[in-house]
Design a protein around this nucleic acid. Structure first.
Lengths: 164, 164
DNA sequence: TATAATTAGTTTGTATGTAAACTAATTAGC
DNA sequence: GCTAATTAGTTTACATACAAACTAATTATA
């Protein structure tokens, strides 16, 4: 069995719609694995890269909560993530004068330097990867993913419960 | 900022192709979160559900390695995963007569019962979720994800290395 | 058949991820 | 202004994830 197609036969569903769902899921996992490996010489994960990119391009200083919202990272996860990044000198926590509950997170010089090294190669890599699609297909993917995200969000937080 | 669109503005890329890539990534993350929550009353994660489905529909008994290959789960990860599932009575490790290095993994009665409870609701849920797409669109998604997976696989294990 | 290479699985160390309970600080409502 | 509710972040406990080093068993090969 070819690894790249394994989701197609994963659970013996015949339905094309399940196949599509698994396709998105699986491709997402693959992208995460690839990204993690791509950054591995400079950062412990692709999540750290994302955090640094958000910090670099943010219009205003961000708190931990704001960072977490943008990246879908839980607040209890952000704490440890920033702890490690602070320890490796990538970011700094600045106390906020008006509100002693929160911090503004800031890239350090070291953080900026590392980001400068990896940002362009990353952009190039993405461009190359996505060059297998035509502009129209890119638009399709954008629309489809947007709709799927909305559908997921609409189903809200339904958990399966046994009521038999 | 709307959460569902956050990847669009994530890193201030203007490029639609990066947007598409992030769309797949983000949607994958969302699906994983949703699935985890969906199963939370019966299983500790969606990964355990996937393992059980693979075991249920496998044509032949599977070893840990074979399970890992199908699910893109690292062998060092499989060990702990099956340890926990064995402890909670979902699966069993059977020794293989011909090869004392490996085990055949098998669903227990309890495992089968739990799977029976969640499988159909899961299928229904997927159907409902994907009903926002027409059959043609479903096919599009299948083709696009398949091509993207191939492209990722083709780039192979390139890690960014500083050679300046 | 003795040795080398490979394979299956485990262990260790570290990172990411969630939920729930918690503290401290701020805001809302009266 | 006092109390209740909310918000920001941390902590704890647990599950998932990967890399590298490891053991034991099997297979290749000389």
């Amino acid at each position: 069995m070819e690894k790249k197609n394994c989701h197609n036969e994963l659970v013996s569903f015949e339905e094309r719609d399940h196949e599509a769902l698994m396709g998105v899921w699986w491709t997402g996992i693959l992208l995460k694995k690839r990204a993690k490996h791509f950054f591995s010489n400079f950062l412990s994960s692709e999540v750290q890269f994302n955090i640094m990119m958000v910090l670099k391009y943010a219009a205003k200083p961000l708190t931990q909560s704001e960072l977490g919202e943008q990246l879908l990272v839980d607040k209890s996860n952000i704490t440890g993530l920033l702890d490690r990044m602070e320890k490796s000198g990538l970011i700094r926590r600045l106390s906020v004068p008006d509100d002693r509950r929160c911090y503004h997170i800031e890239l350090t010089g070291t953080g900026r330097k590392i980001l400068e090294k990896v940002e362009q190669p990353y952009r190039d890599h993405v461009k190359k990867l996505m060059s297998v699609f035509s502009p129209n297909e890119i638009d399709d993917i954008n629309r489809y993913m947007s709709r799927l995200e909305k559908a997921v969000a609409a189903e809200e937080s339904t958990a399966f419960n046994d009521r038999s």
